[in-house]
Design a protein around this nucleic acid. Sequence first.
DNA 1: TATTGTTATACTCTATAACTATA
DNA 2: TATAGTTATAGAGTATAACAATA
Lengths: 163, 163
Amino acid sequence: MARTSTPSPRTVEAAPAVAEVDTSFLETLVGYNARRAALAAIDRFLEGMAPYQLKPVDFSVLSLIHHNPGITSRQLCATLGILPPNLVGMLNALEKRELLSRMPHPRDGRAMGLHLTPGGQKLVRDAERTAAGLEAEIGARLSPSELQTLIRLLKKVYKPGRP
Amino acid sequence: MARTSTPSPRTVEAAPAVAEVDTSFLETLVGYNARRAALAAIDRFLEGMAPYQLKPVDFSVLSLIHHNPGITSRQLCATLGILPPNLVGMLNALEKRELLSRMPHPRDGRAMGLHLTPGGQKLVRDAERTAAGLEAEIGARLSPSELQTLIRLLKKVYKPGRP
DNA sequence: TATTGTTATACTCTATAACTATA
DNA sequence: TATAGTTATAGAGTATAACAATA
């Protein structure tokens, strides 16, 4: 292995091995903690959604269409922070699975209204029930009021304008 | 454009355009909110760290080495959830910028102890000061005690074991 | 045999430019 | 001209397999 052949004298003297890693500074940062929490929650979410073959984004897309039938690609992108070119493939895959369908928009000839098929509606209902169960799992470590507070504060972080 | 040539009668009748997108269900999920908050905080962090040419991961790596001189790649990976092959390139880049140096580990011939150069130490001190300022910015929307609560609850989410 | 650091590589996610058809 | 959807493509981030050196 390529190595430094001349360690500095200062280091020979000090060179401590780190027993336990001190993360105290990073843990003062909201971004660090939020990212870690998001990764943990999403990991758990991935497991729970495996039976439905849905990744978190797929779930979000289907759930939004379910609660907003006729929503356009553009609206989905704005809501979820996805770029239009990256949404196309997801919609194609979900349409091929016959979970959703693109229909002409009633008033805008350029746009397509997105709708769930009956199969898609059933899948989303089941998946949302599972998702709610996963939240309850987190709630078991956090208490219902703590969970409510956590979500309220997170919204304040990413929705600076309106409370 | 390729379009559905025969819209179903049912849709012609109903087909509503969505005025405002209803995200109420997704907003009940911790993962969704945590991801959004993390993305918002990290976006702001990216801006603030631009003068130092540090991405969030680079900052985390340098900060951890600063507070844990002699830490190994393996320990960095475990702490930050990075895979060893993906850390190598980052360390090479930071070493080429003369911000850190790899030194032989005092007791394990396989491992390398990571240390900051004087220039790296100065950069990290400045960057950490800037990062603390960005936190204060979030604190302006959130109140110090809310900020403390938020971080405490986030830790509970991603550190299920110890409180 | 197991582990550290590394290379090579593949896969996913995200981002940019440009085209078409409609407004 | 501006916008919705799409295509192609480039880049960043993340993943696995395999190797040499050391424990």
